[in-house]
Lab assay of single mutants.
Amino acid sequence: MSRVPSPPPPAEMSSGPVAESWCYTQIKVVKFSYMWTINNFSFCREEMGEVIKSSTFSSGANDKLKWCLRVNPKGLDEESKDYLSLYLLLVSCPKSEVRAKFKFSILNAKGEETKAMESQRAYRFVQGKDWGFKKFIRRDFLLDEANGLLPDDKLTLFCEVSVVQDSVNISGQNTMNMVKVPECRLADELGGLWENSRFTDCCLCVAGQEFQAHKAILAARSPVFSAMFEHEMEESKKNRVEINDVEPEVFKEMMCFIYTGKAPNLDKMADDLLAAADKYALERLKVMCEDALCSNLSVENAAEILILADLHSADQLKTQAVDFINYHASDVLETSGWKSMVVSHPHLVAEAYRSLASAQCPFLGPPRKRLKQS
């Protein structure tokens, strides 16, 4: 649940008159999402009104509101027999009622949201009550392989729920002597030191190019640089560091992050930047690179990204790559990247197969709970 924001200063709310007192009302909304995959969808019983329910879910471990999704594969009634019906059901509720908006969509073979439908307002739910769409999607369109909505005969539904909580009022009075504290510009100011090479005390040599930097900042941000300058190493004695395995453009992006906490060109060089972040123990930059690479996972590059993640101990990226390969196994196994990995990294192939087997055979063990970014 997000923290209630402070109200904007009255002088910034309007260029008009300023009242002596004010009130700011925040209506709290808890948002969460749920993904439900139905394997072997074409084998569902086709009687009209037949119901399939998901397991229950909530916004978190401490949330007492429990929900589930309900599907009628062949419609709810005679009117909707040519459609799939989809509903959000409130299973248990400690209150007399709650209000919530919802959005349903289908994830296609690429994991993209399609055929989205959402409620136009927050509906009133009581325990045992459901709301949804009797005519969510035509069955003939859903079952047509050309539309790519049932890869490997799996129907994957994605649901986003927004639950309306209580409202909170914050009130106060205006004073004539309003003090406005300026925003912190530390990142910009440190970035200026790097860009202008002011007050530098060490030189970093990268592929024949020299960059002036500040030992204190490098040591504070990177345990690797800290070790170089702290001990009686040649880098500490000469205040000069030779860097041979990072390209200059990648190095500059890494230094921008060290000084400012930002990497504006990360998406263009996420793979190389991940390697640099791993070498210099820049954990936050490493996770930022993992996130960017996750966003660009595809059938063509899944094997290469899995190898990269394994090489640099990028655990979150590795998990996402394995899950992606499992979901698109029939396509990924035909790529040149996968065939190369079979020869060069057989242990990763074995890991992917083990994960695929456990996903398809849940009876082999208890269900695993899916539970950071600093």
Rank of each mutant, 00 (worst) to 15 (best):
M1Q: 00
S2P: 07
R3Y: 13
V4I: 06
S6L: 02
P9T: 04
P9R: 13
E12I: 09
M13P: 07
M13Q: 02
S14N: 05
G16V: 06
P17R: 08
P17H: 09
A19P: 05
E20F: 08
E20R: 09
S21Q: 10
W22L: 07
C23Q: 04
Y24Q: 10
Y24N: 11
I27L: 04
K28I: 06
K28G: 15
V29H: 14
V30R: 10
K31M: 05
F32I: 13
F32A: 07
Y34H: 02
M35V: 02
M35Q: 07
W36D: 00
T37C: 03
N40F: 02
N40A: 06
F41W: 09
F41E: 11
S42V: 01
S42Q: 02
F43E: 13
F43V: 06
C44A: 13
R45Q: 06
E46G: 04
E46K: 02
E47A: 07
M48G: 09
G49C: 04
K53Y: 03
S58H: 07
G60E: 02
G60Q: 09
N62G: 10
D63L: 06
K64H: 08
K66D: 06
W67E: 00
R70E: 08
N72Y: 10
N72W: 11
P73G: 13
L76W: 05
L76F: 12
L76G: 15
E78R: 13
E78A: 04
K81R: 12
L84N: 09
L86I: 06
L86A: 14
L86T: 07
L88E: 00
L89G: 01
L89D: 14
L89V: 08
L89P: 13
V91Q: 13
S92V: 09
S92T: 13
S92E: 14
C93A: 08
C93D: 11
S96D: 14
V98D: 09
V98H: 14
R99S: 15
K101Q: 09
F102P: 00
S105T: 07
I106G: 05
L107K: 14
N108Q: 12
N108D: 10
N108R: 14
N108F: 14
A109T: 09
K110Y: 14
T114N: 13
T114L: 02
K115W: 12
E118S: 13
E118V: 05
S119F: 00
A122T: 07
R124G: 14
F125N: 00
V126R: 08
D130G: 01
W131D: 00
W131K: 02
F133H: 11
K135Q: 13
F136P: 07
I137R: 04
I137F: 02
R138W: 01
R139A: 05
R139M: 10
R139I: 08
D140E: 08
F141T: 07
F141L: 07
F141Q: 14
F141A: 10
L142D: 08
D144A: 04
E145A: 09
N147F: 14
L149W: 10
L149E: 10
L150C: 00
L150R: 08
P151N: 02
D152G: 07
D152A: 10
D152L: 14
D152I: 12
K154M: 11
K154P: 07
K154Q: 12
K154T: 12
L155C: 12
T156S: 08
T156N: 09
T156K: 05
L157A: 07
C159N: 01
E160S: 04
V161Y: 06
V161L: 14
S162Q: 12
V163L: 14
V164K: 02
V164F: 10
Q165C: 08
Q165N: 11
D166E: 14
D166Q: 10
S167Q: 06
N169I: 02
N169K: 02
I170L: 01
I170Y: 03
S171W: 04
S171I: 03
N174V: 03
T175G: 08
T175A: 02
T175I: 05
M178V: 02
K180L: 06
C184N: 07
R185G: 08
R185Y: 01
L186E: 08
L186K: 06
A187I: 07
A187C: 09
A187E: 05
D188W: 08
D188N: 05
E189Y: 05
L190S: 11
L190K: 10
L190P: 08
W194E: 07
E195G: 02
E195D: 04
S197Q: 15
D201V: 01
C202E: 13
C205G: 13
C205M: 13
C205V: 14
C205A: 15
A207M: 13
G208R: 09
G208V: 02
Q209C: 10
Q209L: 05
E210C: 12
F211Q: 15
A213P: 07
A213I: 13
A213Q: 15
A213H: 15
A213W: 07
H214K: 00
K215C: 15
I217G: 00
L218S: 00
A220G: 08
R221S: 06
F225Y: 13
S226C: 13
F229P: 11
F229H: 15
E230D: 12
M233I: 13
K237Q: 07
K238E: 04
N239H: 05
V241D: 05
E242K: 02
I243V: 01
D245N: 05
V246G: 04
E247T: 06
P248A: 01
E253A: 08
E253H: 09
M254E: 00
M254R: 01
F257L: 06
Y259L: 05
T260W: 05
K262M: 02
D267L: 12
M269R: 05
D271L: 06
D271E: 03
D271A: 07
L274G: 00
L274S: 02
A275Y: 12
A276Y: 02
A277F: 00
D278H: 05
D278G: 03
A281V: 12
A281W: 11
A281H: 06
E283D: 04
E283S: 06
R284Y: 06
L285V: 04
K286T: 08
C289D: 00
E290N: 06
D291G: 05
D291W: 15
L293E: 13
S295T: 12
N296Q: 13
N296S: 04
L297Y: 00
S298L: 02
V299A: 04
V299P: 08
V299G: 03
V299C: 08
V299Y: 11
N301R: 04
A302I: 14
A302L: 01
A303S: 04
E304T: 13
L306N: 01
I307V: 06
L308F: 11
A309E: 00
D310H: 07
S313P: 03
D315H: 09
Q316S: 03
K318D: 01
T319S: 09
Q320M: 03
Q320N: 08
V322E: 10
Y327M: 03
H328V: 11
S330N: 10
D331E: 13
D331G: 12
D331Q: 09
D331Y: 03
L333I: 06
L333T: 10
T335K: 02
G337E: 06
G337P: 04
G337F: 10
W338S: 00
S340Q: 13
M341F: 14
V342P: 04
V343W: 05
V343Y: 09
S344D: 08
H345A: 08
P346Y: 11
P346D: 01
H347R: 08
H347E: 11
H347G: 12
V349D: 00
A350C: 11
A350F: 09
E351T: 08
Y353I: 02
Y353L: 14
Y353E: 00
R354G: 14
R354W: 08
A357D: 03
A359H: 02
Q360V: 08
Q360F: 08
C361D: 12
C361W: 14
P362F: 15
F363S: 11
L364M: 12
P366Y: 13
P366Q: 14
R368I: 03
R368V: 06
L371W: 13
K372E: 09
K372W: 12
K372R: 12
Q373V: 15
Q373L: 12
S374G: 07
S374V: 10
